[in-house]
Nucleic acid binder design. Structure first.
Lengths: 345, 345
DNA sequence: TATTTCTACGCAATCGTTTTAGTAAACATT
DNA sequence: AATGTTTACTAAAACGATTGCGTAGAAATA
């Protein structure tokens, strides 16, 4: 930084003291007399001295910053998670570096490398939908980088995790559709490899099974890129709506898939819920104002972020290697609106 | 970083070379023989060596990171701007640190201090609605910190700026309402002190004046916190809708004010556009799917971010103090949807 | 053969801060 | 008076990477 060149050395020179005295005075060391402390502090203030955090980091071996990897901050859910992360991190004097994968594996690897090469103290990560394996994270984990997974987690790395109760969220949504009188309930979801897909699929299947409703496998559509390409969802809908036993309801996962589905159904002039009902996962604040108001499973994004950060900081601050890990599961909430209300005949 | 302890010194020891030789080999210096270079590079790769960027920063006096200050990333407009910023920054090897003010002046000051104390090389900032003055930035600017303003800018600091054509956006929106047959057009907007408010207000007034329509001052409502509190907008609407010469159309500014207005109007069972038409500023991807589809002025968020970052990097890289500054104005686009279509009688 | 020029590398200082290991001087204890 | 104990400070070594300068030995030139 050349825009703020005042260093501890300048103060030392001005006061005819050694740098170590100045440093200790500023850190309020017991070794320094009150008189000198006052002198130093006053001089620092007068010269608008700010300790160079880079030098501090180098000396202390930590950077007081944590890295975040999410798919995209345009997703309201992740924006809320990040707000939760920041609320805890800032309180503890950590700053955060946010990176986005846009669901790409390449970008995930690049971002993780970039973050670690920026010397982060810990990592908060939600896996990209396109991530086939977690070797890039295993190495770092083995090297001792504290990491906490949230939302999309992996079984292959043993560390803290924070997730929503995806199973129950999906179960509740599906059961609600069943209770509302729908029987042919399709499911449009993310790629089968990521955790949230599996958990939500299990909840969906369980609700149907518990109600004794048989559902063919072709009612389940996976979007390989998590809805990054609108065509993925378009294809899924075209397929479903042209079936002979066309579904009378759809349960969607993920913010993007859900909001895109409502957009496409409207465009296709498929009436919701008259032609097909819809319940989705989304954290948009606009669900109420959509046409029609969208029934949705809402996740506690902010709280997920908070919890994950608390756990990460506890790992970072721990003096001994942590071997006991925890997976925190936060409840989801189903908001019932018009998109899933059986129209009266 | 203790989780990645491989340093240049470790490599030197392993190969029985000096640290300087290793450093120079890795930096491909002409002073080092090809044979040694190959040896060093291979050893570095094998040991998963990564240069410690903190040490590099300290030596080189830059941090290769830029700070961003926005009101909130939950706002789609800012999320898009940030994506634009990242696209340019990452390409140039810079990483970004995002902070949010949530429209609070206190948080803005804190964030700016935090960022500069984290040794950023430059600052990209959109002012908070509650920011009464820019003294906290003037000091930094005077000290030579490169900064570029975007979206909400200030006249008081002479540097690069990137904004939307707010005047024209507002003019077009208002003119469209007039052309659609509306005459009593109200305006709900951000606090009068920030730049976008002034620019949009001017466009709104000009369109009305050009059409020879007199509009009373009480048709203009300011939200002191930019719509952070829903009650601000509630009050504005209650006031407007209970007027004797109740407006037949409303033009709103800012993402949050616009989407909250549609929410409240729906809640109040005020039909849009039958009872009152609506055109707003918003960058949500959901405008099409809202009830009713929302006419809106769309800003080129991504491009604003890109442009601002290009300008910031040019400031950072400049060898000489820059004295010629530029304000780039990007066009807005009006999307006409149902919320502003005069219903047939 | 003596001198100069290259080549390829090492030494040591540097960035700004923190911290360990001193050390004079003042004061207290026997 | 000789010895311990504080007090209040300083010198110097880190942290990891970079870089100007120095130099041994090989090669080229005179």
């Amino acid at each position: 930084m050349n825009f703020n060149a005042v260093t501890i050395r300048d103060i030392a020179k001005e006061l005819n003291l050694s740098v170590s005295t100045v440093s200790k005075a500023l850190r309020d060391s017991y070794e320094i007399s009150e008189k000198t402390k006052k002198l130093v502090i006053e001089c620092a203030r007068r010269n608008n001295y700010r300790p160079n955090p880079i030098a501090q980091s180098l000396k202390q071996g930590n950077s007081k910053s944590i890295g975040i990897v999410v798919s995209t901050i345009e997703n309201q859910f992740f924006a809320q998670v990040i707000n939760g992360i920041e609320s805890v991190a800032h309180k503890e004097g950590y700053n955060v570096i946010i990176t986005q994968t846009h669901e790409s594996y390449d970008l995930e690897v690049k971002n993780v490398n970039h973050l670690t090469s920026r010397s982060i103290d810990g990592l908060l990560i939600s896996l990209s939908t396109e991530t086939p394996d977690v070797e890039h994270l295993k190495t770092l984990h083995a090297q001792g980088l504290p990491m906490v997974f949230f939302d999309r987690v992996t079984e292959e790395i043993n560390t803290h995790k924070v997730i929503s109760d995806n199973y129950k969220g999906a179960y509740d949504a599906t059961k609600h559709l069943i209770d509302s009188g729908f029987r042919r309930i399709a499911h449009i979801t993310s790629p089968p490899n990521i955790s949230i897909t599996k958990e939500r699929l299990a909840g969906y299947k369980a609700a149907l099974a518990d109600a004794g409703i048989f559902t063919p496998d072709y009612y389940i559509s996976y979007c390989p890129h998590g809805g990054r390409d609108i065509s993925e969802i378009e294809n899924a809908l075209n397929f479903l709506l042209n079936l002979e036993d066309k579904p009378d309801a759809i349960f969607t996962t993920s913010d993007r898939i859900t909001t895109t589905t409502i957009f496409l159904l409207n465009k296709l002039k498929v009436a919701i819920p008259a032609d097909v009902a819809l319940v989705g996962y989304t954290n948009t604040t606009l669900a109420d104002v959509l046409n029609p108001p969208l029934s949705s499973v809402h996740q506690q994004g902010f709280e997920i972020g908070q919890k994950a950060t608390e756990m990460l900081l506890s790992l970072i601050k721990s003096k001994w290697p942590v071997t006991e890990f925890e997976t925190v599961v936060l409840p989801t909430h189903l908001f019932i609106r018009e998109s899933s209300t059986k129209p009266k005949k």
